[in-house]
Every structure is written in C-alpha cells, then in structure tokens.
Design a protein around this nucleic acid. Structure first.
Lengths: 223, 223
DNA sequence: CTGTGATTCATACGTTCGTTTGAATTATGG
DNA sequence: CCATAATTCAAACGAACGTATGAATCACAG
C-alpha cells in the first residue's frame, strides 16, 4: 500500500539523497551511492519516486513547503500586527532570511544539511532544477518584493529588486560555504567553535543585509 | 613541438570548455561535448591537458592569473598614492570586486562567460576544484583582508572577515545569476536592456557592498 | 489460513563516460 | 628532401551510469 506517511524506505532515501546532493551535487551523486548509504535496494528509488529527477524534486519539496509556508505566515503576522502601517525593512529581512537561517537549528526540518544544499543549488547550472526552484519560490518572492516596495517607498523598485538579489546571494553563500570558505581563505574564524558560529551567523548576516539594503543609492555615471 | 603560446587547438578547447562548464557545470559537461563544440578530436583534450581535471584547472588558471595580478597591482597603486594613510573601504572594495566585475566587459579576458563560471564554481561541490581555487585565491585574499583591517580599525577582525565573506557571496551570485535569477523571480528588471544592466550592475553592487561592510555591528543575544 | 497487492531483491539492459592506443597526418630543423 | 618530432585521427577499452524486469518476499484484509 502506498502509505501517505513516509515509509521508512522513502525517508531513508530522501535523507541520504539530501546529504549526498549537498556534498557532491546532483550530477556528482549516483543512484548507487544514494541507495548504498540509505541501505536500500538500487531499484527502490525508481519504485518510490520514478526517476532521479523526481527524487531531487521531492528532496526539495519536503523542506521548501514548510519553509515557504512559514515565510508567508511570518509576513501575515507582521502585517496583522502593523495594522496598515508599512513594515520596517529589518522585519521583512528577518522574516525571509531569518526564517531560513533558523532552519539550520531545526534538525527535524533538515538542519544545516538542507540549507547548504539549498544555498548551492540556487547557482546550480542544471536547467530543470533551477526551473523547479523558480516555480517553488515565485509566489513567496513576489509577496516579499511587494512588502519591501511598501517599506521603502523612496527607493526605486528596480533598486530594491537588485538588492533583494544581492541579499539572496550573500545568504546562500554564507550558508553553503560555512566550511567551504575555510578552505578558500583559511581566515581567522577558527577561534569560535562551530556551535558558536551558527548562533552568531544570523545577527551578523542580518546586520550586513540591512546595511546593504539601506545603503545610499548608487550614482550612475552618464554614458 | 609543445609551443609555449597557445596552439589553436588548445585555445579552442579552453574556450569551449569555459562556456560549457559555465552552462552545465563540471560533472554536467562531457569531453565529447567540449571537443565537439571546439571542432577537435576527442583525444585532443587528453593529449594537450592530460585529463578533464587538468583541463578545468587550466581554464581557471588562464583567467585568474591575470585577475589576481591586477588585483595586487590595484592595491599596490592605492597604497602608493595613499602614502601610509589607511585606505578608504570603498577603494579596497572597488579594487577587489570592481576589478572582477570589469572583466565582464573585456572579451579578451573571458568576459561575462568566465565571470559566471567563476561565480558558480565558488559554491561548486566538487572537492578538488574548491581546493584548487583555494590555492589560487589564498595570497590575494590574505592581502585584502589585511588592507581592510587597517582601513576599519574599530571593527573587530572577525566581523570584517565575515563581511568579506558576505560580499563575495553577493558578488558571485550577482554575476552567476544575471539571467538565472530572471527565471527564479521574473521580477521587473525587464525595463532595462541587458547592455544597461551590466553597466549599472557595478555601481549598484558596490553601493550595496559598502553599505553592508559599514553597517552597525550586530548585537549578540547572550546564551 | 489464504489470496492479493505492495515492496524488495538480484540481475541485466543499453548508453555514455573518461581515457588509451597505434596508425595516419602534419610541421619542422638539418 | 628527408628524418624526426608533434599533432590529429578513428576506434576501442573497461567502468559507471540511470533504468527496467520478473521473481521472491512481505503485509494484511477477508
């Protein structure tokens, strides 16, 4: 019987796939690695999900459904409390990016592993994955974009859109590279243990994002 | 004779590989695609470069050597002019990130194709590529880190390091996703044609980065 | 206990992968 | 012009890939 709850096999496959896609990318992870790590038969993926493409979509759907609902809920709550007044940019930024980062502490929802996978996948070159994520993200991003427009009425909309773009990049990178960048730079973050780093990432990131979002507008040189 | 200058075949392979790695990633690009697009025999890659891994390293080396030298030169020049005075953060940011973005306009140096490849590869999961880029970047990043420390003596070093990290992410993402993000969001940048977008990306990005770099320090909640 | 559908399993299929080989061709210095 | 090195070429290698198959096993309603 196709159980509505996750069968043990399905969950084991999704967990293994999530970790391996995070570590080695989509093309760099084979079905044999996934089923090997999950401790299930090779044919189980095609039986339960249909194909490798359908598998990674389910890996994302399982987590993104919750994240995007939570983001919508957070914005609903803020707007209800604000009672018609425009929100503060920091509230919007925290509702969008803070909600995401706080997933890292929630092992039940994929924790840091899913977050790194998400961060890396946003720049993944594979066409169908980006198209899939585009669809999953569209309505939420649209909603937050509008909220920022209302929150910053003096800033041109195009500028806000770009800065949302930059914020997404900084966040993805910060998540994806929490230890990848140790490699790249070997800079002096060693002093803080990894527990501490995750705790402090969020306030550090939010400060940076707000600073960038509220920065003086650029002067374009004529041409 | 192994010509020191690039033979036609070598250059054609490097150009094709650069474009294809950008479009489909390392694992997603096959030797047959590369040699097909380059119009050379399949065996030519292994003859001229030795392996697929050695090929992508050469793809990066060809461009990064110039970029990193240029970054060093820009900082040398700034420090010579400043005559012992600490540099302004905006000068340092422009020397590092501006030099990179301006590569996009220089078709001779790979233009926007290489830049997107670079942006995407910084979050690439493949271990040996990240390790290679780490080595290529190490001394330059070290040098800029020190310059920022001197430029912002009141900001804790750990904070500067993190913010450098965030700036790198925003920049990589802005480059890599110049049209990938159109997909994700379909937000209203359509008004400006793509020529314009590239011209205006740099001042927009720099404003954002400086804003983030100079943002008020985060307050850590006790725990 | 039995029968039926869901699941797991070993195995194999056809492709495509990166790499290698040895002969054919081209370029070059004496 | 010839000898020798450099390069290109068609062809093939074994390995790994995603997927499909049909039998074996399991779960459970009647």
């Amino acid at each position: 019987m196709q159980d509505n709850r996750l069968s043990d096999t399905r969950a084991r496959i999704l967990d293994a796939a999530e970790r391996l896609f995070m570590a080695h990318g989509y093309d760099g992870t084979s079905m044999r690695q996934i089923t090997g790590e999950a401790g299930v038969n090779l044919a189980a993926v095609n039986y339960h999900f249909g194909s490798k493409e359908a598998l990674i979509q389910e890996v994302f759907r399982r987590r993104l459904n919750w994240l995007n609902e939570e983001r919508m809920r957070a914005l609903d709550e803020l707007e209800a409390t604000a009672d018609g007044q425009p929100l503060k940019p920091s509230q919007i930024v925290d509702a969008f990016f803070g909600t995401m980062i706080r997933m890292a502490e929630d092992e039940e929802r994929g924790g840091v592993i899913f977050l790194r996978l998400l961060g890396r996948t946003l720049t993944e070159p594979s066409d169908f994955i980006r198209a899939f994520l585009a669809h999953e993200y569209k309505t939420v991003v649209e909603r937050y974009k509008e909220a920022l427009f209302r929150s910053l009425p003096d800033v041109p909309k195009a500028e806000i859109v770009w800065r949302f773009h930059f914020m997404l990049g900084a966040t993805s990178y910060a998540i994806a590279g929490t230890d990848a960048l140790r490699l790249v730079t070997d800079w002096g973050i060693e002093a803080e243990d990894s527990e501490d780093r995750l705790d402090r990432l969020l306030p550090r990131l939010i400060s940076f994002l707000i600073g960038g979002l509220r920065a003086p507008l650029p002067q374009f040189t004529d041409h």
